[in-house]
Every structure is written in structure tokens, then in C-alpha cells.
């Protein structure tokens, strides 16, 4: 209401400067277009590399493939990669299920509940979680967390063992998918929290006041105005987290006792394995054809990640009319 009108620039220099400004504009447009194109080129290059390197394995006959020690006896790449895809998805989905509610809770607390000083400190601590290298998470998960959670998993399998997910007896040490899920959840927590927090903070004050003026309590206001407004942002944040969980290698490798089955039992050892951890595990001793087979599994991971992201885009776009962006 009290903004001062900006003093208009003297006309003569403004006209003279137009050409240099125009050039700056063109350079900037070129740079940003270049950056946009670069990402596409990199993506295409990665896809090309994966296809090229995987090609020998993809076209190899069954007899050739069975020569690789860890390829199943039927010599089919599909039978090999199937359980790996399954294990990767189980790990990532489990991590997401554990992390998203916590992340939304922390983000809401920081954006709408905590006193200002506490909220910035808390935001900083959460961001710090992202700075820890994954190998440290792996060590911590295997050496500290696994023994710590073993009694909990034990209890889970004893009380909820009738659910296939919690089939017992829980393995000792707890080098199982459930432990991996917890560690991955901690690893993807910072990114989901940070993005959600920013989105929640951007809820228009007008919408918050609309809810409050209708007689909403703080929680009702959050549910009515803040969460629906941030919904698409939270989905995007979750997809960023999911992407990280899908590709996480070190932590899984160091914690999980691997196995190649389609098993949903989260508390049993030697049931699942993820693509990324499997590549890291087998790569050092693989023959050339073995490397090619491993890269073929990497191609599968690439496709999964792409599909997951497209699915998320579709979910967000489906209700674009109601997003508040218009």
C-alpha cells in the first residue's frame, strides 16, 4: 500500500543501453537452453551406454550365460533380473513408507508449529543428515542398528508373524530387508523433509486465513489449506527420495544378507537383493560377459527409475486444475 513508485530512468541512456542488454538476454537464453539440452544429452548418453554395454548379454544364448556362476541354470537373464527388480522395489517402497510420514511430520512442525528459532535449528540438523556419506550409513546400519533392532524385529515376528511380511523367526544378526528399509528411510528423510518444508512454507497466507476464519484449529487449517496445497510438492519430494532409495548401493551392500527370491518376508535373512548392491557385489570378479549381464540389470534399474518418475508426474498432473497454481 505504501510502496514508492520507482523513479523512471532517464530516457536517453535507457535507449542506448538497449543493445547491450539485448545481447545479455541472448547470452542468458543461450546458456539456459544449453543447460536444458545438456541434461537430455547426458540422459541419452547414459541410456546409450547401458544399452551398448548390455547388448552382449542381452543377445547371448542360454549356454553362454550359464557359464557365469551366478546366472540361474535355465540361463535366462530374465529369471536372474526378476528377483533383483523385486528386491529393489521392496527396499525402496519400504523406505518410502517409513520416511514419508515422518518427513511430512517434521516439515509441518518446522513450517507451522515450532517457534522460529527452534525451527531453523531443526531444519539445519535435518539437512546435516544428507551430508553423511552412504558408506557411513552402511557401517552404522550393520554394526549399530542391526543388533539394536533385532529384539524389536523378534517381537514383531512373534506378534505379527501371521502376516507374511513379518514371517519369523527374525534373523540374528538382523541383516534383513527391514533394517535396510530403516536405514534407507533415514537417508532419504532429509531431501523429502527439505522440499516438503519449502512447499508448506509457500502456502498462501490468504488460504491459511480463510481456514482460520472459518473456525479451523491449527491442525484443521494445516489439513485444509497447507497439506492440499503442498500435495504435489510432497509427491515430487517423495520421488526424489525414491530415486535415491532405488539406486542406493553401499548401505544395502553392507547391511543386507542377499538372496534371490520373490519373498516379501522382511525379517528373514538371505531373501532379497537390490540391483545396485548386486552390481557392486558381483562386479569385481565378473567375466566380460558377466559385466555385460550386470549392466543389463543396471539398464533395468534405469528403466524402473524413469517409470517411477513418469508415474509421479502423471499423478501430479492429474489434478493440476486443483493444484492452486492457477
Amino acid at each position: 500500500m505504501t510502496t514508492e513508485p520507482t523513479t523512471p530512468a532517464a530516457p536517453a541512456p535507457a535507449v542506448r543501453r538497449a543493445s547491450t542488454r539485448d545481447r545479455a538476454g541472448r547470452i542468458f537464453a543461450g546458456l539456459s537452453t544449453g543447460a536444458g539440452a545438456l541434461i537430455l544429452i547426458v540422459l541419452a548418453a547414459v541410456a546409450g551406454f547401458l544399452l551398448l554395454e548390455a547388448w552382449p548379454a542381452l543377445t547371448a544364448g542360454a549356454e553362454e550365460l550359464t557359464s557365469i556362476s551366478w546366472i540361474p541354470d535355465d540361463g535366462s537373464l530374465l529369471t536372474y533380473v526378476g528377483p533383483l527388480i523385486f528386491g529393489t522395489l521392496v527396499a525402496a517402497v519400504l523406505a518410502l513408507l517409513l520416511a514419508v510420514p515422518v518427513a511430512i511430520g517434521i516439515a509441518l512442525f518446522i513450517s507451522h508449529y515450532a517457534p522460529r528459532r527452534l525451527s531453523s535449528a531443526l531444519g539445519y540438523v535435518v539437512d546435516l543428515l544428507a551430508a553423511i556419506p552412504s558408506v557411513v550409513y552402511g557401517l552404522w546400519g550393520g554394526l549399530v542398528l542391526a543388533p539394536l533392532v533385532q529384539p524389536v524385529w523378534q517381537w514383531l515376528s512373534e506378534t505379527l508373524g501371521w502376516i507374511p511380511l513379518f514371517e519369523g523367526p527374525a534373523a540374528t544378526p538382523a541383516r534383513v530387508m527391514m533394517t535396510v528399509g530403516v536405514v534407507l528411510a533415514v537417508m532419504i528423510l532429509p531431501i523429502i523433509t527439505a522440499v516438503s518444508r519449502e512447499v508448506f512454507l509457500q502456502t498462501p497466507r490468504l488460504h491459511e486465513e480463510a481456514a482460520l476464519a472459518l473456525g479451523a484449529t491449527r491442525w484443521e487449517m494445516v489439513r485444509m489449506a497447507v497439506i492440499p496445497f503442498g500435495r504435489s510438492g510432497v509427491i515430487s519430494a517423495s520421488m526424489l527420495g525414491l530415486g535415491r532409495a532405488l539406486g542406493e548401493t553401499m548401505a544395502v551392500l553392507m547391511i543386507l544378507s542377499p538372496g534371490l527370491t520373490y519373498s516379501l518376508a522382511l525379517l528373514l535373512a538371505g531373501r532379497q537383493q537390490t540391483i545396485a548392491a548386486n552390481i557392486a557385489l558381483q562386479f569385481p570378479e565378473a567375466s566380460p560377459l558377466g559385466v555385460s549381464a550386470l549392466i543389463a540389470t543396471g539398464l533395468a534399474l534405469f528403466v524402473i527409475t524413469l517409470a517411477v518418475n513418469m508415474l509421479a508426474r502423471w499423478v501430479v498432473a492429474r489434478r493440476a486444475d486443483f493444484s492452486g497454481a492457477n
Binding site: A213, L214, P228, S323
Partner: peptide, 22 residues
């Protein structure tokens, strides 16, 4: 205050329907 606001409604300067609702 929540009870007060349920008795005394308010209309704001800028229209503010909830964009995520029909």
C-alpha cells in the same frame, strides 16, 4: 478463538477460495 470465528464469519480483500477444493 476458534469458537468465536465460527460465530463471526469473515470475507477477505482478495477472494480466497481453497484452490484444491471444488
Amino acid at each position: 478463538p476458534v469458537a468465536v470465528r465460527r460465530q463471526i464469519g469473515m470475507v477477505f480483500q482478495r477472494p480466497n477460495p481453497f484452490p484444491t477444493m471444488s
